[in-house]
Amino acid sequence: MANLRELSRKGELLTGGHRACAGCGAPVAVRQVLKAVDTPVVVGCATGCLEVTTTIYPYSAWNVPFIHSAFENVAATVSGIEAAYRSLKRQGKIQRDIQFVAFGGDGGTYDIGFQSLSGAMERGHDMVYICYDNQAYMNTGIQRSSATPRGAATTTSPAGRVITAGKTQYRKDLTAVMAAHDIPYVAQTTIGHWNDLITKVRKAFEVEGPAFVNILTPCRLGWQIDPADSIEICRKAVDTCFWPLYEVENGVWKITLKPREKKPITEWLRPQGRFRHLFKPGNEKLIEEIQADVDRRWEMLQKRCEVGG
């Protein structure tokens, strides 16, 4: 269990003065992730909001070595850094212990960077991959990704007169896909559950070999919420079982926080402007379907946890 007072004694590895929107979840994710590691860390970042807002030349918000090279390749880039580290350490040219972390948004992770992520995990590089999942291409102005949930309106899946649903497809369950890579550690958390997040990221850094942590990270612009609600909305995602908190450690599935009472999905949907159209007359069935999908996935997860744990 992490302790905030202890954590606060560590220096800030991400400074203020970055250009993320007020209330953006991404820097919150980064701050919490970097609080979880005590050894020096090298950061790689995919193209996206986080990279763009934190490294506007000549202003870098990073107090750690940082590299960005392209959108789809942060896992490959960091695997090269980690390979260099192993090589130079073996040759005695480096003595320090160093950890490696890659940050990518959902676009850079679920979609365009998926191949490079899968490859890096399969090769077994000792690195932590963090997906800050805000459920759409926010940097280019809110376009749908394979992480966008069914029913969300984005600029490329708008709620129209004929297609009234917004995005018609369900989201890809990337955390489960990464678990299928059979790597030492996979977990899912949110920035609104700092203790859960830091505990998981610590484990991710501690294991030898690759680890993947999928962090639900609100985008107040794309989700159309009040910036002050960016943390609150995460709790709704977990309480409705839309985004269960769980981990897969050496193949053992475990729910890390079970809501005392499973709330109806509307509690997650209603506060977000991107789901506003779902509450118009005629879309009742859509909400029922979304609820049924959440229920089905939650049941499946619980079964996996029973079997695994």
């Binding site: 490294t55 030349y57 990073w62 070595p65 940082f66 590299i67 960005h68 090279s69």
Partner: peptide
């Protein structure tokens, strides 16, 4: 620490 691959306007 250096920042490699920053965004230039």
């Amino acid at each position: 620490p250096i920042t490699v691959g920053a965004l230039d306007f």
